[in-house]
Amino acid sequence: MASILFLLFSTLTVLCAVGVVVNKNAVNAAGCLLLCLVGVAGLFVQLDAYLLAFILLLVYAGAVVALFLFIIMLLDVQGRQSFGFSGITTFAGLMAFALLLTGLGTIAVKGHLDAPRLNRLAAEGANLKPYAQQLFTTYLLPVQIIGFLLLIAMLGVIVLSKKHATEEPAK
């Protein structure tokens, strides 16, 4: 039962992940991304990590991808010709590939988690407390810094988008 579900969700996730990259139609790609996230959430649920699953859904599926779609539709980018690889995109792609390889290599080499730790995670996975505790103790500073960075970014976006209004004299 569990393995069937795992296979189902992992297949869905992988196929949709490929779909995000391969799809020329931006709306289809965003749809694939959404399904991909749902698949990942399903995998999380199987690990009894309900909190992660639903936060993933709430933040990424519910809000971020919705905004993606929103912008794709507003800009109507789907008819555009795709750009070829330029120097910088090739470089970025290679970097991303290298990072992916590194990650996979790391998991392959030392990704094996010992059973007691897994069990402990499984027991606490469904519970809020460990997450909260970690967030508000060990990782308080990073969380705050990241939050602050996001706030700055948001302010920057607002300032940039408001710039037009000041440039064009109001009548």
Partner: peptide, 11 residues
Amino acid sequence: LDVGILAVFAV
């Protein structure tokens, strides 16, 4: 679920 309200919001 333990995370009921989150699940409702998320879904």
